[in-house]
Amino acid sequence: MLHVNDVRKSYPTAEGLVSVLAGVSLDLDAGQSLALTGESGSGKSTLLHLVAGLDAVDGGTISVAGTALEGLDDKGRAELRRDRIGLVFQQFNLIPSLDVGANLAFQARLAGRHDRGWSTHLAEALGLAGLLNRYPEQLSGGQQQRVAIGRALAARPALILADEPTGNLDEASGDAVMGLMLGLVAKAGASLLMVTHSERLAARLDRRLHLRAGRLSDRVQP
């Protein structure tokens, strides 16, 4: 499903070029979940952004569901995100002017794959059925993150990329949201690559990888 091979990425700073990823390789099979842990600045989010095609690699290759990202232009990468990837951000990034129902269905509509039954199921499973007419500003943080997870799953993507999905939530809410997400990802048959600081949450996924100073320094099998 996901092949990352010898990926390198640097950013220019005032002090010169700083290497964030220095040759990272990993594979993720269909239906598998993988946690990516590491200290702040270790390159976790950068790797996630590169996999999502939000940024371009300096070297190495990435392929998602058989599509190599290197050969894609902006339009191609956007199409890939739209059709094959679901993104869950730490900051939720809901569209504030759309109500919960519209936010939930949004990416599925973009991809032209809106399934009313699946959306209803997601809303019920995520406990959002009674909140469909509310706007994001009227929801708690936990509720907003549940909408973001529902939005990512609504188009039934092959790969879910989650960047600290519970980072803005308290422990109890985080656990609840995490449980819902894992259950729904499994039900959708998607793969999951999740960036997290939390070893406890990482332990709930099929595999774990640890990034340190831009390199995968530790491989932990479940």
Partner: peptide, 16 residues
């Protein structure tokens, strides 16, 4: 601005 970013992240090309 956040909406534009979200739309881009969800797969809307810059030109579109």
């Amino acid at each position: 601005r956040p909406m534009f970013r979200t739309l881009r992240a969800l797969g809307v090309p810059a030109r579109t």
